[in-house]
């Protein structure tokens, strides 16, 4: 029984990281209808930012995450302007290819600049806590609660500010958004900025638990795609639910089945959910 609680905790940690990355991906998809394959690599760049700010500049962990979020927001905006904006009127295939190009560019760039070897972030919350027999480092709890706090902040931004609700407006009805005078450029840049900042936050939180290396984003982006398909493309509650479902399915799946079948659990889940609800858990009506 203890094992299941331990795996629950592992699954929640993993789900929290997935969630922050998938949220960004789904936001971008919602307003631009681009699957941003490079999103996982923004997460990777975010991880390096936090790493260097901590190790080279000796910044406090939280400061490092905050600054990285700002840096990544800027990188995200630049990426939108340079890569996706020029393609806004061309067929979607062009954007797909551009996204793959951006991904390769970021990974190769990171390899050249920082080398292909694994690095590790210094641990700040490395004390082990024992909750009713479940052992975990504080970092895992930090991940879970910080992710919740960030989701709360995102919720407030999108629901309580007019600027934030333009993102939602644009994803619910693009033409309607134009008609009320919402500036598509502004919203696109803002969405890329917010999504990239979330990726940086995820990377900073996960950093001390995992390794940092140039291809780390590739592993995550596949999971994030599964999540947003699971939750309904472009849906925010869908991304949150999908992320925790996948995180828990993976950790509990690893308990019950041999490791080789673990990904099978996640994908069978995907098949089941999609055969019951073909457009995902929280698909928008009428799309």
């Amino acid at each position: 029984m203890e094992l299941y609680f331990q795996q629950l905790l592992n699954g929640l940690t993993l789900g929290s990281i997935y969630c922050l990355v998938a949220l960004g991906l789904t936001l971008i998809y919602g307003i631009m209808h681009i699957p941003n394959f490079a999103h996982g690599h923004l997460y990777m760049v975010g991880a390096y930012c936090v790493l260097f700010l901590c190790t080279l500049y000796g910044l406090n962990y939280w400061m490092a995450i905050l600054i990285s979020m700002v840096i990544l927001a800027v990188i995200g905006i630049i990426m939108e302007r340079l890569v996706f904006h020029p393609l806004r009127d061309s067929p979607p295939t062009n954007s797909f290819i551009a996204a793959v190009g951006a991904l390769l560019f970021l990974e190769a760039g990171a390899t050249v600049l920082w080398g292909a070897d694994y690095r590790r972030m210094p641990e700040v919350f490395d004390k082990v806590v024992n909750i009713f027999g479940i052992m975990a480092t504080q970092q895992r709890l930090v991940v879970i609660f910080s992710a919740l706090a960030l989701m709360g902040a995102l919720y407030l931004f999108m629901k309580k500010t007019l600027i934030g609700s333009t993102i939602e407006a644009m994803s619910q009805d693009r033409e309607g958004a134009f008609l009320v005078g919402i500036d598509a450029n502004m919203v696109s840049m803002m969405t890329f900025g917010v999504a990239s900042a979330l990726a940086a936050a995820a990377a900073g939180l996960a950093g001390p638990l995992f390794l940092v290396f140039p291809s780390m984003g590739g592993l995550l982006i596949i999971k994030a795609f599964v999540i947003i398909v699971l939750g309904g493309m472009g849906s925010i509650p869908g991304a949150v639910a999908g992320a925790y479902i996948l995180g828990l399915a993976e950790s509990l799946g690893a308990t019950v089945f041999p490791a080789e079948y673990k990904d099978l659990v996640a994908f069978i889940l995907l098949v089941i959910i999609l055969s019951i609800r073909p457009t995902g858990l929280f698909a928008k009506e009428g799309r």
């Binding site: 007019l162 939602e168 009805d173 309607g176 008609l179």
Partner: peptide
């Protein structure tokens, strides 16, 4: 109509 269907009436008007 092109409304923001999942948003409240008030929010729709405000975005106007």
């Amino acid at each position: 109509r092109r409304l923001f269907a999942q948003m409240s009436v008030y929010k729709n008007l405000l975005l106007g």
